[in-house]
């Protein structure tokens, strides 16, 4: 039943398929993010409590929600790579990790820039912020573990094990941090009040969330293609591409 999928484990096919998919992802991502951001910045009505500072939501929330999803994507790819020994899945995981780290960093930074005018401080040890910070550390751990092995087949396996251990730990960390912050601080801070959001405000947010997802997909494809080439330097089809590139 899944036989057809296995043909895409062949690096050349995977390379070509991602090449055909890339323009679609890229164009859709640009369109969605362009539309969502313009709508959010220019046309969405002002929040009556937070004023115009709430417009940060249109990048903060997509980045924050995608950071977790990207980690899951990376860990699933590693899992497939470890269990079925499919190398293309390992390369996909290696391609995703830096993107996830950047997205998590963006979520943290925009959160800080939103917190300063709203709460009067750049950083609070709030549950969500803390678990996002821990997520960033997990990403950095996976990236540096992958980078420190010379042999990239081993590197992918080691980083994969770490990513999977991280997946088991992410809910525990999230739960413990939630519980810790409810213990330590009175819940005076509410990040989002859902009821105050009108449809006019929510639509651009949803569009931007879809746009961020597509954009992460597009960057993953770009990095994935480079990763395939780097890991298959001995194959004739890659060598042909290399000769063509050098002639340019």
């Amino acid at each position: 039943m899944w036989k057809w999928l296995h043909t895409y484990a062949d690096p050349e096919r995977a390379y070509k398929l991602s090449g055909t998919l890339l323009p679609w992802f890229a164009c859709l991502a640009i369109a969605f993010i362009g539309l969502g951001t313009t709508w959010g910045l220019l046309f969405a009505p002002m929040d009556y409590q937070q004023g115009d500072s709430f417009r940060i939501i249109y990048i903060h929330v997509p980045a924050a929600s995608m950071s977790m999803a990207t980690y899951m994507a990376m860990a699933s790819a590693s899992f497939v790579g470890l269990v079925w020994q499919i190398k293309s899945a390992d390369w996909a995981a290696a391609a995703i990790a830096p993107i996830g780290a950047i997205i998590t960093f963006i979520a943290l930074l925009t959160g800080a820039a939103w917190g300063k005018p709203m709460w009067g401080t750049w950083w609070v040890w709030d549950a969500r912020l803390t678990s996002e910070l821990v997520l960033l550390f997990l990403y950095l751990g996976v990236i540096s573990l992958y980078a420190s092995f010379e042999d990239k087949v081993l590197a992918a396996r080691a980083a994969g094990i770490l990513a999977i251990v991280g997946v088991i730990n992410v809910p525990i960390i999230k739960y413990s941090v939630d519980w810790w912050s409810s213990l330590h601080q009175p819940s005076t801070i509410k990040i989002t009040e859902k009821s105050t959001m009108t449809n006019e405000m929510i639509f651009p947010l949803l569009i931007n969330m879809a746009g961020f997802g597509l954009m992460i997909g597009a960057i993953t494809l770009v990095r994935y293609r480079a990763e395939i080439l780097a890991r298959n330097g001995m194959r004739p089809w890659v060598r042909e591409l290399a000769t063509a590139e050098e002639a340019k």
């Binding site: 821990v134 550390f137 997990l138 950095l140 751990g141 540096s144 573990l145 420190s148 770490l162 251990v165 991280g166 730990n169 525990i172 960390i173 739960y175 413990s176 941090v177 519980w179 810790w180």
Partner: peptide, 18 residues
Amino acid sequence: GGVLLSLLILPLYIPVLI
């Protein structure tokens, strides 16, 4: 491995600490 080790395992230690 030394510095890398701390980056890998200290985040996993957080729940125990809390």
